[in-house]
Amino acid sequence: MSNTNATFPSASGGAAAVREYHVREHHPEQGTLLGFWIYLMSDCLLFASLFAAYAVLGRNYAGGPSGAELFDLPLVAINTAFLLVSSITFGFAMIAAQARKLGGTMLWLGITGLLGLCFLGLELYEFYHLIHEGAGPSRSGFLTAFFSLVGTHGLHVLFGIVWLVVLMFQLAKHGLGAENMRRLSCLSLFWHFLDVVWIFVFTFVYLMGVLP
């Protein structure tokens, strides 16, 4: 925020009499959040398209394996727990930030990032195992839709982790100022959004995929 002072002679022509005007320039406090909500809505459309494609192609096995034969539900359940717990730890980070506790904010953000990395690690292991078993994305329409949907979500989680690391550097340098609080709020929305999408993935792809 900056102030600009301007002086003008008064209408009476007095040499000493001046009027002082203050011009304020400021960042619109809700502008960033509004723009980010618009971005999230566009991401909703992206995932809705991927879910629609999976709904069409999810039973096109082309003589290959089905979800019931491929999916390891206990492993996916553990991965789901990693992501859901990371949403809780991010909530703790936001509570610490609102209390102006920089150390606590950094700690909970670090734990959130580690849980996100665990989620990505298990997802990459699942992809490697499927491809090693000959169930790559080109094997059938079902697997193409599966890798597209789950892989797109995984890329979003990777982007969120990169964003989180960059934000931690910004917090260490500039503290919990207004700009970093806005960035934290936007990342919080993004992270919780990914959790909601994953709940739909877990239910629609994995749980329904093992049904006959």
Rank of each mutant, 00 (worst) to 15 (best):
I131Y: 09
L117G: 09
M94V: 11
L117R: 12
G116Y: 03
F90T: 04
E126P: 00
S140I: 04
H132M: 14
T105I: 07
L115F: 09
L102I: 15
I95K: 14
A96S: 12
R100I: 08
A97L: 05
G134K: 03
M106Q: 14
A96D: 14
S140P: 00
G113T: 05
K101H: 13
S138W: 09
A99I: 02
G110V: 04
L102A: 13
R139I: 11
Y128N: 13
G116I: 04
G141L: 05
S138D: 15
A99M: 11
T89F: 08
G103W: 00
P137E: 05
A99L: 12
L130P: 02
A97M: 02
S138I: 11
L117F: 07
Y125G: 08
G103H: 06
L124Y: 10
F127G: 00
L114A: 12
M106S: 11
K101D: 15
L117V: 13
E126L: 09
G141P: 04
L115H: 03
T105C: 12
L109N: 03
R100Y: 10
M106N: 10
A99E: 15
P137H: 02
E126K: 10
G141Y: 03
C118T: 03
S138K: 11
A97W: 02
A96H: 07
W108F: 14
F119G: 03
A93P: 04
T112K: 03
R100H: 13
K101L: 11
E123K: 08
R100L: 12
K101S: 15
I111G: 02
F127H: 08
L109Q: 09
G103P: 01
L117K: 12
T89P: 01
L143M: 11
Y125I: 13
G103D: 15
Y128D: 15
L114C: 08
A135H: 06
F142A: 06
G91Y: 03
E133D: 10
I111H: 07
E133R: 11
F127P: 01
Y125M: 13
F119P: 02
I131D: 12
L109E: 02
L117D: 15
L143E: 01
K101Q: 15
S140T: 01
T105S: 07
L115I: 08
M106D: 04
G110S: 15
G91R: 01
L114W: 01
A99W: 00
L120R: 05
A97F: 00
L130S: 03
R100M: 11
G134C: 06
L130A: 10
L107W: 00
K101I: 07
L130F: 12
F92A: 15
Y128F: 10
A93M: 04
E133A: 12
A96N: 06
L115T: 06
A93G: 04
I95N: 13
P137F: 07
L122Q: 13
I111R: 12
Y128A: 14
Y125L: 14
T112I: 05
F90I: 05
F92K: 13
F92G: 02
Q98H: 06
W108I: 01
L143T: 01
I111S: 09
F142E: 05
Q98K: 10
T144I: 05
G103R: 09
G91D: 01
Y128R: 15
F92M: 14
W108E: 10
L107C: 00
M94S: 05
L115G: 08
L109T: 05
